[in-house]
Every structure is written in structure tokens, then in C-alpha cells.
């Protein structure tokens, strides 16, 4: 199963919103994947086996080098935006 990690500054709050809405987007797409939420400081371990990292444009630099696709979400409440970007990344 594909793995997706939502990353925010602290691993509580905004990454959890992103996780909830990413799960809704995956449902719409009919894609089975696990979504977890984590913070920037632990992105190395949290995203070690992930295909996709979902995050804010503000955090891309802090995430640094990774083998996962870093997908930037502007509006965390726009499930349509998340759906389009996940489809591109996973499709």
C-alpha cells in the first residue's frame, strides 16, 4: 500500500487537518493509501518509506532532501486541490 505523510511544524493541528482531507481526497479517487501526520523534525524517519509528503509551501525548505514526492498544498480545506495533486503524484 502506498504511504503518504502529512508534515507540519509541530505534528499536531495543521498536519492532522491535511491528513483528514487527504483521506477524503483518496476516497474520491478510489486510491488505497495510508496517511499519517508528523512534524518537520521527524520527517526523516516518518517519511522513510513514504511515496508522498504533503505539506505547506512554507515548510518545503525545512523538509530538505527526500526520496518522496513533496506535494505542496496551498489551501488545506480544498479537497479538490488535494485530490488533483495526489492524482498527479500517485497516478
Amino acid at each position: 500500500m502506498k504511504r503518504i505523510v502529512a508534515i507540519c511544524g509541530q505534528g499536531v493541528g495543521t498536519s492532522a487537518i491535511l491528513k483528514v482531507n487527504a483521506e477524503r481526497a483518496l476516497d474520491r479517487l478510489g486510491i488505497r493509501a495510508s496517511v499519517s501526520a508528523s512534524d518537520v523534525a521527524s520527517v526523516g524517519t516518518a517519511a522513510a518509506n513514504a511515496q508522498v509528503i504533503l505539506t505547506s509551501p512554507e515548510l518545503v525548505e525545512s523538509i530538505g532532501k527526500t526520496n518522496a514526492d513533496v506535494v505542496v498544498i496551498d489551501n488545506y480545506f480544498d479537497v479538490g486541490e488535494i485530490e488533483r495533486k495526489l492524482e498527479d503524484a500517485l497516478g
Binding site: 511544524g9 509541530q10 493541528g13 518537520v40 505547506s56 512554507e58 480545506f77
Partner: peptide, 11 residues
């Protein structure tokens, strides 16, 4: 201050 404006999660 530490992580930037990522808490601005929607317009």
C-alpha cells in the same frame, strides 16, 4: 518564528 507562516492554511 521557527517554521514560518504555514499556520495560514487557507486563504
Amino acid at each position: 518564528d521557527e517554521f514560518g507562516a504555514y499556520i495560514v492554511i487557507a486563504p
